[in-house]
Simulated scan of single mutants.
Amino acid sequence: MVRGYTRYVSDASPDLLVPTLGIRTRAWQYGDPAGEPLILVHGFRGDHHGLEGLAGLLAETAPELRVVVPDLPGFGRTPAIPGREHDLRLYGEWLRAFVAEIAPGGFGILGHSFGSLVVARAIADGLDPSRIMLINPISSPALEGPNGAMTRLAIAYYRAAAVLPESRARRLLGDPLIVRVMSEVMAKTRDPELRSWIHRQHAEHFSDFSDSATLLQAFRASVSHTVGEFAAAFAAPTLLIVGDRDDITPLPEQLRLQRAIRGSRLRIVPGVGHLVHYEAVEDATVFVAGFLRETAAERAEPDARRGAAVDAGESGR
């Protein structure tokens, strides 16, 4: 293992098929099947593989957890939802339906990148997690700031694909050279082995989408919203994990998001960009596991004080 990431070989339970909005969502489970549920939501153009390292390390670090990682509709091994626009509203609706099926008794939620938007929208529409964790949240408008030029290029790229027949659109959207350029831009590590591994991950999993129309709809959703739009709906303890070299959402915008989410905590990973889940998965695991322990202890303290007050009252009778 190279420091900062792991080639985690999954010993997860057989993948789950969860009925959601007329499809069956494919998901993978790590840790204790009877443990406290923690649901991880991956980013745009990815699938569960992107969060597999984090899920595996969390299962080792906090064996009391049941970590579940689904493939978003239209990505990986989960089909698109027929007859629906794959906008942020739909993805939020899907997440609420998925959670209701697998964790009706309470859960924590974590979203990376586009997954942070899906989580935020679901919370605004009624999802009620006990703890919220966002890694590289989308906190600034896509066309503003230092990443605006790159976003405009991406919009032109996806618009070009939209006018092509499906077979040609898939070839363009999955072009290995273009995928490699995207990977080179996002990767910040100078470790050649780690950098090569990241490029292989993107080459293997970045083009595993159901069809070009769904991908284009999801792209529009990813560049049309920010987590800050939904910040007022966050009621549970919230942890933000960010890289200080993130080109998609600069650090000042992440600090602004922290102020917008009341009581949220921020952990900054130096020298890392938008790929914390690859380049600093060990750090992310430590932050998430620590946050879960801290918030569990904080929840237990008022209960203990109430119990002590009851005992004192009874003893005084």
Score class of each variant (00 low, 15 high):
Leu239Cys: 08
Pro165Asp: 12
Arg171Glu: 15
Ala236Tyr: 01
Ile261Pro: 05
His277Gly: 00
Ile261Met: 05
Arg245Asp: 15
Ser224His: 11
Arg259Thr: 13
Met186Lys: 07
Asp208Ile: 07
Gly148Tyr: 06
Val179His: 02
Ile178Pro: 00
Ala236Gln: 02
Asp244Glu: 10
Arg267Gln: 13
Pro237Gln: 03
Leu239Ser: 05
Arg152Glu: 15
Thr189Cys: 06
Asp208Ser: 10
Ala232Phe: 01
Arg259Tyr: 00
Arg170Asn: 06
Arg195Trp: 06
Tyr278Gly: 01
Val181Glu: 10
Ala236Gly: 12
Phe206Gln: 12
Tyr157Asp: 13
Leu251Gln: 09
Phe219Met: 15
Arg265Ala: 14
Thr151Asp: 08
Leu240Gly: 01
Thr151Arg: 09
Glu204Gly: 02
Asp246Glu: 06
Leu257Gln: 02
Ala218Tyr: 01
Ser222Asn: 15
Ala162Tyr: 00
Leu251Lys: 06
Phe209Ala: 11
Leu266Val: 07
Val163Met: 07
Leu255Trp: 09
Asp247Arg: 04
Val181Thr: 12
Lys188Ile: 03
His277Glu: 15
Ser167Pro: 00
Pro176Lys: 12
Pro192Met: 09
Ser264Phe: 04
Leu194Pro: 07
Ala154Cys: 05
Ala156Pro: 03
Phe230Gly: 01
Ile261Asp: 06
Ser212Trp: 02
Thr238Ser: 13
Pro192Ser: 09
Thr249Trp: 04
Val276Cys: 14
Tyr157Glu: 14
Ser210Phe: 05
His277Cys: 10
Gly271Asp: 10
Asp244Thr: 01
Ser207His: 12
Arg159Cys: 03
Ala235Glu: 13
Val227Gly: 05
Ser212Gln: 11
Trp197Glu: 15
Val223Gly: 02
Leu172Pro: 04
Thr151Asn: 14
Ala203Lys: 07
Tyr158His: 15
Phe234Gly: 04
Ile178Arg: 10
Ala236Ile: 03
Leu215Ala: 10
Leu143Ser: 13
Pro176Ala: 09
Gly174Asp: 08
Leu216Phe: 05
Leu177Ser: 10
Met182Glu: 13
Pro137Gly: 09
Leu216Met: 14
Leu216Gly: 11
Thr189Ile: 04
Ser183His: 03
Gly243Asp: 03
Ile135Ala: 11
Asp244Lys: 00
Val227Asn: 07
Ala142Met: 04
Gly243Met: 02
Gly228Arg: 13
Gly243Leu: 03
Glu204His: 10
Gly148Ser: 13
Leu164Gly: 04
Phe206Thr: 04
Ile248Ala: 13
Ala142Tyr: 04
Val227Thr: 09
His277Tyr: 13
Leu194Glu: 07
Ala221Asn: 07
His202Asn: 15
Arg180Gly: 05
Gly145Arg: 08
Arg195Leu: 10
Arg256His: 05
Phe234Thr: 02
Glu166Tyr: 07
Met182Asp: 11
Arg259Gln: 15
Gly273His: 06
Phe209Ser: 08
Thr151His: 08
Asp247Trp: 08
Ala154Glu: 14
Leu194Asn: 06
Pro192Asp: 11
Asp191Lys: 06
Val242Ser: 09
Arg245Gly: 05
Gly273Met: 05
Ile155Trp: 04
Arg259Cys: 01
Ser140Gln: 10
